[in-house]
Design a protein around this nucleic acid. Structure first.
Length: 852
RNA sequence: GGGCGUUUAGCUCAGUUGGGAGAGCGCUACCUCGACAAGGUAGAGGUCACUGGUUCGAGCCCAGUAACGCCCACCA
């Protein structure tokens, strides 16, 4: 070690992440470790496609957790020498990004309509160039070993080409079609959104009961609604087919109040005769259920609310009002006409836009849809056959249930930012629709001008092809041949359908194979109080602030450690534990690196404790590795923590200190070896501190990021050494506890001798006993140790302790006797369990005998 | 309305095929012993949500109940 390094190690008594992280990260990037050549085949290589964060986004805890998991496996496999690629990129995030830029425009008092489409899109690009790399920089802070030289964006030229190819193929297969259909209209973004972008919330509304007179009769049908303004678009009244109350009315007509339209009375299974009066007004233009019923019965579809949220011409005297105003007006008019029978408070669930937060207005509009049945079929089969494994297991069933009920996907959005749908219309001729991968010059039939479809594609349409589009598909690229399919995917549960299912479908359809073999659905980190972490609730915790305070390694360790179950509260203590571990690693390493003799890193056991620590080390490597490979990150990091802190630091280092200070070569070699192994084992989860320590290790030839990941050496497993040392540890703890209970000053050394089995050498020193003496009668027995009288012992305290110990033993003897006195236990419990109990009883009796 | 998860120490969570309840943090006492006081040693602290059942034996298996959370769903 250079004298500069030595001085730095001696001086730095605390690990300082802020001083280390940026420097170490720059070294990794400079080394090119994250940028693999496109060589080899997927079976040998290792690749992961990052769930592309929104280009508008900032790193949140979900990203940080998912990133920590992916990086752990990516780094582990890179260290194993596999050609490893972690694909990075961002998602253009149609609605979110457009909203951010529109907000900026509004602040200037302008709108996107004033700007025009072309200028607006240019402005969004400018925004993206300026702010879009923020989240990528944040992944670097986390230490994520992505390939930053292959960063992709879902609106890159090549990516757009892939999207268009997919659209055209799906269109040519007849899956994609255009239709007037009921969609979720989001008045906030002025666009249709998919079912998956809708969230239902409990809302208190008023439920109005309205009388519809039956034509040619004194009778009325009373219907109930929370949206009386939509009655203007009613085209039928439905009753249950089996409902005897109304059987004679089916086929006759009602008259719609205020409007006077004749409404057929129809029978449909959807109507629940138990609910309300058993009569349901049918509004195909503004209610998804009524729309289905309307299509079944061939009813007219009338729209009285427009995309702008105002009443249309169809609404007659109410035209031009907002829907809310129209509701009041309609209710007032009905009341005047004496048609309003009741008004009562009513709590029900109502759809809201996940994006804009506004209440969804179900509208019929002309949209592009993708039929999903054919795409879903093989995607169901691969999961059924475990060719794509979804873990934890319950998510497999959730996936399959959803896929078996899959419905057409509305893929068009009325936005400007996104992939403009590759369809061109010719106004001049009959064959007026051209679907193409690139803009056609002129109409193929009449040579007329073409104009492109105004709508863009749902953002998820492009993310659905992320794993292969990022590798250059549809071209047959070296990247695609080397890295597709990817190795695994870790994801948040809320995008299982939105994203994961669609990737599996498109992967099979277009790339000829599933996009990944394993899907791991990770925990949701909740706020400290158990509420959802969200910006709008103010419950978010910023991962970058945690990194600033504790360091990236600490946050990574903490997140992995706390993510044991599906919902887990954010735990500051776990992050602190990670920070403490980084510091402990640093300081234990200082002890080793500053005191070891100049020898090679190698296992050179001389004493039982050496065989013990090597055995424990190798078992820990085997166990932690197995847990990482099965996505059990929480237990993996806790186990590594426990081995390092308890076994290595608390016991082994304390035991071998005299040998170390003595300059013994064997213990030096063993310690350097153990350090090398533990650094390698921890590097995937705590990359910065381990890399920094490694830079001082005499065995270092290159960066730890590309050093050999440790493989457990079973020949070093040693049950006998483990039993001996653990016995010694137990005895040491008993001796210390005894000293504490009889109030012996911590520093004083007590006289004692051994009767019986000799414990390991370290026991006497760590418990501060001098064993050479044999003067006098023992005053206490702890295992084989006979404590001899001395001035430092308070006789009364010793006697008191002795009596307490006898009481404990009597209780133990009684417990064991009771258990062994149970005939059922002796007869039915396994022999070894009974024998163990007998052995305990004997030992307790013997010790009690001895103390009496 | 279906489905899933959670309930164990003051807090956040572990607990393997059923065989004397664990960790981290917090708390108490002691310790500047040649890595680390962000440390060390020892200790206190639990009706394992509740009710039944199976078993020689249940935190663990079975049935039911409750609370909290999440996902899905077309009941006006």
């Amino acid at each position: 070690m250079s004298s500069a390094d030595r001085e730095k190690l001696e001086k730095t008594t605390r690990y300082a992440p802020a001083e280390v992280e940026n420097r170490v990260f720059a070294e990794w990037v400079e080394g090119g470790y994250f940028h693999p050549a496109a060589e080899g085949v997927p079976a040998d290589n290792f690749s992961v496609a990052i769930p592309p964060p929104n280009v508008t986004g900032a790193l949140h805890m979900g990203h940080a957790l998912n990133g920590s998991m992916q990086d752990a496996l990516v780094r582990m496999n890179r260290m194993r020498g596999r050609n490893t690629l972690w694909i990075l990129g961002t998602d253009h995030a149609g609605i979110a990004t457009q909203a951010v830029v529109e907000k900026g425009l509004r602040a200037e008092g302008r709108t996107r309509q004033e700007l025009g489409r072309e200028a607006f899109v240019e402005r969004v690009w400018a925004w993206k160039e300026e702010y879009g790399s923020r989240i990528v920089e944040q992944y670097k802070r986390l230490g994520a070993s992505c390939d930053y030289e292959r960063e992709r964006f879902t609106l890159d030229g090549d990516y757009v080409r892939a999207v268009y190819r997919v659209f055209k193929r799906l269109y040519d297969k007849g899956y994609i079609y255009r239709d007037h259909y009921m969609v979720n209209w989001d008045p906030g973004s002025h666009s249709a959104i998919s079912d998956l972008e809708v969230e239902n919330r409990e809302v208190e509304d008023a439920l109005y009961s309205i009388d519809y007179p039956v034509e040619g009769s004194d009778r009325v049908l009373t219907v109930a609604t929370v949206r009386p303004e939509t009655m203007l678009a009613d085209t039928a009244v439905a009753v249950s087919p089996g409902d005897e109350r109304y059987a004679d009315l089916v086929g006759r007509h009602c008259v719609l109040p205020l409007v006077g339209r004749r409404l057929p009375i129809i029978a449909d299974e959807h109507v629940d005769p138990e609910f309300g009066t058993g009569a349901l007004k049918i509004t195909p233009g503004h209610d998804p259920n009524d729309f289905e019923i309307g299509r079944r019965h061939g009813l007219e579809e009338i729209g009285v609310i427009g995309p702008d949220g105002r009443m249309t011409e169809e609404a007659g005297e109410f035209a031009g009002m907002t829907a809310a105003a129209a509701q009041d007006a309609v209710v007032a008019a009905l009341r005047e006409e004496g048609r309003l029978r009741a008004e009562e408070p009513y709590t029900h669930s109502v759809p809201f836009s996940h994006r804009s937060g506004e209440r969804i207005e179900p509208l019929i509009s002309l949209q592009w849809f993708c039929r999903m049945d054919e795409l879903a079929k093989p995607a169901i089969e691969v999961v059924e056959r475990d060719e794509v494994r979804i873990a934890p297991a319950q998510w497999k069933r959730v996936y399959l249930d959803w896929m078996r009920e899959i419905r057409p996907w509305c893929v068009s959005r009325q936005l400007w930012w996104g992939h403009r749908i590759p369809v061109w219309y010719c106004d001049a001729c009959e064959a007026n629709l051209v679907v193409a991968e690139a803009a056609p010059e002129r109409c193929g039939s009449c040579g007329g001008e073409l104009r492109q479809e105004e709508d863009v594609l749902d953002t998820w349409f492009s993310s659905a092809i992320w794993p292969f589009a990022t590798l250059g598909w549809p071209d047959d690229t070296p990247e695609l041949r080397a890295f597709y399919p990817t190795s695994f995917l870790t994801t948040a549960r809320e995008i299982l359908f939105l994203w994961v299912a669609r990737m599996i479908m498109t992967g099979i359809e277009f790339a000829g194979d599933v996009p990944f073999r394993d899907v791991y659905v990770h925990s949701v980190i909740q706020a400290r109080d158990g509420r959802r972490m969200s910006k709008s609730l103010g419950t978010g915790i910023d991962p970058l602030e945690e990194i600033d305070v504790y360091g990236a390694d600490a946050l990574r360790f903490g997140l992995l450690a706390m993510s044991s179950t599906q919902d887990v509260r954010f735990s500051d203590a776990k992050v602190q534990q990670g920070s403490d571990l980084a510091n402990k690693l640093w300081n234990a390493s200082r002890l080793i690196l500053l005191n070891t003799a100049a020898v090679d890193s190698a296992p050179r056991p001389l004493h039982v404790e050496d065989r013990w620590i090597l055995s424990r080390l190798e078992r820990t490597i085997a166990s932690v590795t197995e847990k990482l490979e099965t996505y059990d990150f929480a237990h993996a990091v806790q186990e590594a923590y426990s081995f390092f802190w308890r076994d290595l630091c608390d016991w082994y280092l304390e035991i071998v200190k005299p040998r170390l200070y003595d300059g013994e070569e064997e213990v030096s070699a063993t310690l350097l070896w153990a350090l090398e192994r533990i650094l390698g084992l921890l590097h995937p989860t705590m990359p910065f501190v381990t890399e920094e320590i490694w830079s001082f290790h005499p065995a270092r030839r290159g960066h730890l990021a590309v050093h050999q990941f440790p493989v457990a050496d079973e020949s070093l497993f040693d049950d006998a050494a483990e039993a001996d040392v653990e016995g010694g540890i137990g005895l040491t703890q008993q001796l210390r506890a005894w000293r504490d209970l009889v109030d012996v000053p911590a520093a004083s050394v007590l006289a004692a001798r051994i009767e019986g089995v000799e414990p390991p050498d370290f026991v006497a020193r760590l418990a501060r006993f001098e064993l050479d003496s044999d003067a006098g009668e023992p005053v206490a027995s702890i295992g084989p140790v006979r404590v001899l009288p001395s001035g430092q012992l308070d006789a009364a305290a010793v006697a008191d302790r002795l009596e307490k110990r006898r009481e404990e033993l009597r209780a133990e003897v009684e417990r064991a006797e009771r258990k062994l006195g149970n005939e059922g236990f002796v007869a039915k419990a396994p022999v070894e369990v009974v024998e163990e109990e007998r052995g305990k009883l004997e030992r307790y009796r013997a010790e009690l005998e001895e103390l009496s």
